[in-house]
Design a protein around this nucleic acid. Structure first.
Lengths: 310, 310
DNA sequence: TTTCATTATTCACATATGGAAATAATGACG
DNA sequence: CGTCATTATTTCCATATGTGAATAATGAAA
C-alpha cells in the first residue's frame, strides 16, 4: 500500500464529500480511490468513513484522523517542495578544489560576478595543487590542468595554457644561452615541478618541426605548487618551463628572458571535473557553466596552473 | 512508488551505513532497498547518497533530507500509533440509543459498573422508543426489543421479556373478569401500544396448549412509549399487555391483578444492534460485550421495553 | 600489481496492483 | 410502492513491481 496516496485520497474524499468528485479532483479512477480508502482503513483497523452510494459521512475517528493527516501531508509537501526549490533555485554550499595559480589569478578575481548572479550559493574553495578525493571529501568539483586520469569522473574541458622556457638574465650571463635542447644536459640546471600526488618530476618536452625531445633534466630546485614555481623561476637558480601568461609581465620588463623560443611545448589542457550523478545539484551545474563561460569569454582561458598533476 | 517505504529505507541506510545492513534490519531484500533509494532520488531529483560497493556516503542534500524525513516519519508513526491505541485502549465518545424502559430500569442503574471498567469512554444515551437512523445520526448502537427489521444492521440477541395480561381491581369490578380471550371482544377495552415508527397498534396474542388467538382489540387508550404504557396501565382504563418484570411490584401489592393467567404470550426478544463494520471500534465492542454480560449475568435479562418497534 | 571477499546493481520471472467495464446499492421522485 | 439517475464496489485482464539469482564494482590484503 502507498500510504501517502491513501491519506491523500482520504483527505480529498472528506473535503469533496464523495468518492467520485475526489477521484476527479485527483485525476484518478474511482476504483483506485475505493481501494486506497479500504487499504487505509485496513492499515489503521478503523473505519474512517461511513458510506453508501449516495452519502459519505466521516466517522468520529475519521474526523480526528483527517486533521492530523492533513498536517502531516502538508509537512511532506513542504519537504518535497524545499528539495525541488533547492534544485531550481541554486542555493547552498558548494565545495570547489582548484590549483593555486588558477585560483589566485583567474577564479578568485572573477568571484564578484558569480556572487552577483547566485547570491545564495556559498563557495568553499580548496586551493592547492594537491589533488583531493572528490567523493571521499564531499567535494563537488575541481578545476585542474593536465590529463584527467580518473575514469570515474566527468571532465569538461574549459581551456588550455602554453608552457615556455625561460630564465633570468643573471642565470644566462653565468651559464650562457643554450642553442639547442641537448645543451641543457650539460652545464645547466632547471627548476623542476614535481607532482604533489606521486612525487614524480615533470619532464621538459620540446618540439620543432619533426624534431622532438623530452628530458628529465638536472635540477637545482624542485617545487610542487604552481604559485611557488612562479616565485622559484625568479630566483635565477635555473631554467624554467613556465606557464606563459603568468610570466608574461616579467618577459615584458626584462626580469626574465626566453630560452629556446623556436621550440614549443605541449600546452596544458584545463578541465573542470566532478563525479557522475543523474541528479546533479543546480548549484553545481550553474558553477560548472559559469566557469566554462569565464574561460570561453576572454583570453584568460589560456591560463592555468603549472604542470599537470600526474 | 511508496514514498514512505522509500523514506524509511533511506533513513535506515543512513543509520546503518550500508545497504545490506539496512535491508537486513528491515527484513527486506537488498534489490528492494536499491530500488527504493533510486526511486526516492528520482522523485526528489537529488542525489542523496554517494555509494560504491564498499562505501556509502551521505551527500549534503541527503543529510538535510535525512533530518526532516526522520521527523516526518516519527510524526506518522505517532499518528498510526495513536489510531492503534484508540483501538486497543477503548476511549472516546459512544452514542447509544435505548428504549425508555430499558434505559430507566436496566442500563442506567448499571452504568457505575461500566464507568468503573472504562472510565475513558463517554456515553451519550439517546432514550426513546422512537427508533433512530444509526448511520445517519452517527449512533454507534441501539438496544431494542422485538424483531429487528433492518437487514443491514447486525443484531446480537441479549435476552427476552415476558408479556402478561393485567388490569386494575377497579376495572375488573366494573367490567367483570374475562374467562377467555374471546371475552375481550365485547364489553371490554384494552390499553394499546402503537409503534412510534409506523403508528400501527400491537396485537394481543394469547396461547394455551394448541389454542392460539391474536386480536386487534377495541382500546380506550393507546400510547407509543414503554414508560408511558406502564403509567397508562395504572389508570384502570383498560386491560393491559404489560412487561411482567415492570409490573411485578404492582401485582404483589394488589394495585394490579392478572387477567387470563393461564394464557401465555410470545416474549419480546431483546437485541443490541449496530452497523456492520470490518473495523469495529474498541469502545463499541466493549460496550456491546458489557451489555450482553449485564443481561446474561442476572435475571434482569428478561427485562425490556414494551412492544416491538414494528 | 593481482586476488578475492564484500556489497550494490541488474535481470528476468512470479506476484501484486491499477483501472475499464460491469454490477450492486442508494435514495429522490412520482 | 416502483423507477431510475447517481455513485460505490467488484471483477478480470493488462501493466507494474518485488525479489532470487547472477553480475559488476570496490577496495583491502598479499
Amino acid at each position: 500500500m502507498d500510504q501517502i496516496a491513501a491519506m491523500r485520497a482520504f483527505v480529498r474524499v472528506v473535503e469533496a464529500g464523495n468518492f467520485t468528485r475526489a477521484a476527479d479532483l485527483m485525476e484518478m479512477p474511482k476504483p483506485t480511490v475505493t481501494k486506497l480508502i479500504q487499504q487505509l482503513e485496513g492499515h489503521l483497523r478503523t473505519k474512517l468513513l461511513n458510506r453508501t452510494t449516495r452519502r459519505v459521512r466521516v466517522t468520529p475517528d475519521g474526523a480526528a484522523y483527517y486533521e492530523r493527516a492533513l498536517a502531516l501531508l502538508s509537512d511532506l509537501d513542504e519537504l518535497d517542495g524545499s528539495m525541488a526549490r533547492a534544485q531550481t533555485s541554486p542555493a547552498g554550499r558548494l565545495r570547489v578544489d582548484i590549483g593555486t595559480s588558477l585560483a589566485l589569478n583567474v577564479i578568485i578575481p572573477a568571484l564578484p560576478d558569480f556572487h552577483a548572479r547566485y547570491p545564495d550559493i556559498l563557495l568553499d574553495l580548496g586551493v592547492s595543487d594537491r589533488p583531493a578525493d572528490l567523493v571521499g571529501e564531499n567535494i563537488d568539483c575541481a578545476i585542474r590542468g593536465g590529463d584527467i586520469l580518473d575514469p570515474n569522473l566527468i571532465a569538461r574541458r574549459i581551456g588550455q595554457v602554453d608552457l615556455v622556457m625561460c630564465a633570468t638574465p643573471g642565470y644566462i650571463a653565468r651559464h650562457g644561452m643554450p642553442q639547442h635542447p641537448r645543451d641543457l644536459l650539460e652545464g645547466h640546471r632547471v627548476i623542476a615541478y614535481f607532482s604533489p600526488r606521486t612525487g614524480r618530476r615533470m619532464a621538459f618536452d620540446m618540439v620543432r618541426g619533426e624534431e622532438s625531445y623530452e628530458f628529465d633534466l638536472p635540477y637545482a630546485l624542485a617545487v610542487n605548487d604552481s604559485t611557488a614555481y612562479q616565485a622559484a623561476v625568479l630566483t635565477g637558480l635555473g631554467i624554467a618551463h613556465a606557464v606563459e601568461p603568468l610570466i608574461q609581465p616579467y618577459l615584458a620588463d626584462g626580469t626574465l628572458v626566453r630560452v629556446l623560443p623556436e621550440w614549443r611545448s605541449e600546452p596544458i589542457v584545463l578541465h573542470i571535473v566532478y563525479a557522475p550523478n543523474r541528479h546533479l545539484s543546480s548549484r553545481l551545474r550553474v558553477f560548472v557553466d559559469w566557469v566554462a563561460e569565464l574561460f570561453a569569454s576572454s583570453n584568460v582561458y589560456r591560463l592555468g596552473p603549472l604542470p599537470p598533476p600526474s
